[in-house]
């Protein structure tokens, strides 16, 4: 009698994706879940141990802040999941689901950060990670300020930290630094040697607040600038503005409300991203859906996601 050993793999582990077939026979890449790119040192050590035991010569740092284990034999899936679990490290997702949110370092130690992007990324990961969209992938990103290192508007929903500045003229010593530091030109010095602010050019970056040596500038409101409908890939779109100064604690609810609309409106159109759905339905349709739930934060009008000319293929 032949000694046939049946390979056992817990198929539940594979449901959310995160196990990606490689070129080689039996080998897979295992994508790890690292919301916001934050990795505790004990977890990092455990990942190194698991990679050494089951993986290849290296790991890959993905463009969306994941660590990917390379050359994992499918027979080892259960052991890999179990050993990573000892350090609470989970496997990520792929396919038509809400993906792991990315974020820059935010405001804890980064001098530019205006909001706690790390907290937002963790919360969204906890509440929405892996949610099936029914249509296509769904990516979320958090930038701590309008410099926007994470390129938030190239995601299905991109959040950008913002503050609205306000001036206490009595505390001003007339040094002119705020006007000089305001790159968009929203501040000029008046004849009385006090700053004059214009609302229209202001991008809510908070540089005036940071530079003012006396604290005469401070924040009147704080929250996220929200752009929706972006993506990259073969046919890139840049997301457009739907909300401003959205409070940090309403982010998960906001995303869930957008998902609701996407699930319904993309029905019957196959594998289509949110941005293309907005272009088909019109930006106002999504804005109407959001306005009732987020009054005071949604903008009054917006435009559809903007097409980026790739200059190859039919846009040549």
């Amino acid at each position: 009698m032949a000694d046939v050993k049946q390979t056992k793999v817990d198929l539940n582990n594979l449901k959310a994706g995160g196990f990606i077939k490689e070129r080689g026979k039996d080998l897979f890449t295992v994508r790890l879940r690292v919301p916001g790119g934050r990795m505790s040192v004990p977890r990092l050590k455990k990942i190194a141990e698991v990679a050494e035991k089951f993986g290849g010569e290296f790991v890959h740092l993905s463009v969306r802040q994941s660590i990917e284990l390379i050359n994992i034999n499918f027979k080892d899936f259960d052991a890999v999941v179990e050993e990573l679990g000892e350090a609470t490290q989970k496997v990520a997702s792929c396919g038509a689901r809400v993906r792991v949110p990315v974020a820059c370092g935010g405001c804890e130690y980064n001098p530019n950060g205006l909001v706690d992007t790390q907290k937002s990324a963790l919360e969204v990961d906890e509440k929405l990670f892996g949610t099936p969209t029914g249509h296509h992938k769904f990516k979320v990103a958090f930038a701590g300020c309008p410099f926007d290192c994470p390129k938030s508007a190239t995601n299905d929903i991109g959040f950008q930290g913002a503050i609205y500045p306000t001036l206490d003229t009595d505390a001003c010593i007339g040094c002119g630094l705020c006007a000089k530091s305001c790159v968009p030109g929203a501040i000029v010095m008046g004849d009385d040697n006090r700053p004059i602010f214009s609302d229209a050019p202001c991008i809510w970056c908070g540089d005036c607040v940071k530079v003012c040596p006396t604290g005469a500038w401070s924040e009147a409101k704080r929250g996220y600038t929200v752009r929706i409908g972006g993506k990259w890939g073969r046919n890139p779109l840049v997301g457009t503005l739907f909300a401003t100064f959205l409070p940090e604690e309403r982010v998960a609810e906001f995303i869930a409300t957008v998902l609701e609309w996407y699930k319904e409106k993309a029905e019957g159109f196959g594998r289509v991203r949110l941005g293309d759905t907005i272009i088909r339905e019109g930006a106002q349709a999504l804005l109407d859906h959001l306005q009732g739930r987020f009054p005071g934060y949604t903008v009054t009008a917006t435009i559809a996601p903007q097409v980026i000319a790739t200059q190859v293929g039919s846009s040549r």
Partner: peptide
Amino acid sequence: PRSLKADGHRLIGLK
């Protein structure tokens, strides 16, 4: 200037 202010000193002028 703002770091010195954060240290507790009083800023009188900056020109």
